[in-house]
């Protein structure tokens, strides 16, 4: 079986790198935490990896807009490397701060690949402050996104102050038409939240929690799948434990977040685009 190598970006206030590497390993990848400057200096090369993850955190302390300065650095220092990585069929995943970075580079929504034009934004939550809460999300089965194939709904934590997805109506329309809206905030029964707080925790337009590029190989999302790496991450697991014990069912081990990474690893392993 082909080795799937994943690069988890670190440095400059990014965090979530340990658990992101951990869940990638659970999903079958060989994950490595790599400092941004190690890529810029050439000590590490994106082309040696199949999956490139920009995880959560506060790059440059979120000053001057969350993800703005990291996006600028990627755009000006790694532009060609990233483009060729994507062209070769590499997968890019931006979680939370990483999603903010991807929209600020223009890699998302990426209507014209390689244009690096900003067309969407993640702005301050309508509630005005940082929130850590679990949300229900539903996935769009029409989406080309390779990370979410076969997934219908999931519970995941969101942890952000700037997560309200915003774009002008024409951009939203195009995103919807292309099925680039991959996941939406939803109610417990699986319907989109309809903007209602707290099911939609930040006021995102169309309840958008994550989008992909037209190829489906670049995904950005605000919820943290890597924070549901173990079943005890879930807020209700002690109730679920009682339910299962009384029903004579075994206790699980993994959290549902692993599924998304397993999809990515599967795609990278079987995808034909890869030269590596």
């Amino acid at each position: 079986m082909k080795d799937v190598r994943a690069l988890v970006l670190t440095g400059f206030g990014l965090n979530c790198d340990w658990e992101t590497a951990h869940i990638l390993n659970l999903a079958g990848a060989q994950a490595r935490r790599v400092h941004l400057n190690a890529i810029i200096s050439g000590a590490q090369r994106l082309e040696d990896y199949h999956i490139f993850v920009i995880g959560g955190g506060f790059s440059w302390a979120d000053e001057h807009g969350a993800g703005v300065i990291l996006a600028m650095r990627l755009k000006h220092r790694l532009r060609d490397q990233i483009l060729s990585f994507v062209d070769r069929g590499g997968l890019v995943l931006g979680i939370c701060n990483g999603f903010q970075v991807l929209v600020n580079t223009g890699l998302l929504p990426g209507f014209q690949p390689g244009s690096w034009e900003r067309q969407a934004a993640l702005v301050t939550n309508d509630c005005g402050t940082f929130r850590d809460q679990w949300v229900h999300v539903v996935f769009n089965d029409q989406s080309p996104c390779v990370f979410t194939r076969g997934l219908e709904a999931m519970e995941l934590p969101v942890r952000h102050g700037e997560g309200k997805f915003f774009a002008e109506p024409d951009v939203i329309e195009r995103l919807e038409k292309n099925h680039q809206v991959v996941l939406r905030y939803a109610t417990e029964d699986g319907h989109p939240a309809g903007g209602a707080f707290p099911a939609n925790p930040n006021g995102s337009i169309h309840d958008i929690a994550g989008i992909c590029d037209p190829t489906g190989r670049i995904l950005g999302l605000m919820p943290h799948p890597e924070a549901f790496n173990h079943w005890t991450n879930h807020p209700d697991w002690t109730l679920e434990k009682e339910r299962r014990r009384r029903a004579g069912e075994p206790l699980p081990e993994e959290g549902a977040g692993v599924l998304l990474f397993r999809n990515a690893v599967h795609f990278a392993r079987t995808g034909e685009q890869f030269v590596a």
Binding site: D132, Q133, W134, R159, N229, T232, N233, P235, T238
Partner: peptide, 23 residues
């Protein structure tokens, strides 16, 4: 208060400070 604090970063949370069906 607790809602404003990231209490799950690092992915290690097993029992959260706030619990119950309404968490």
């Amino acid at each position: 208060i607790q809602r404003q604090y990231d209490h799950e970063v690092q992915g290690t949370s097993a029992v959260k400070f706030l619990v119950g069906r309404d968490r």
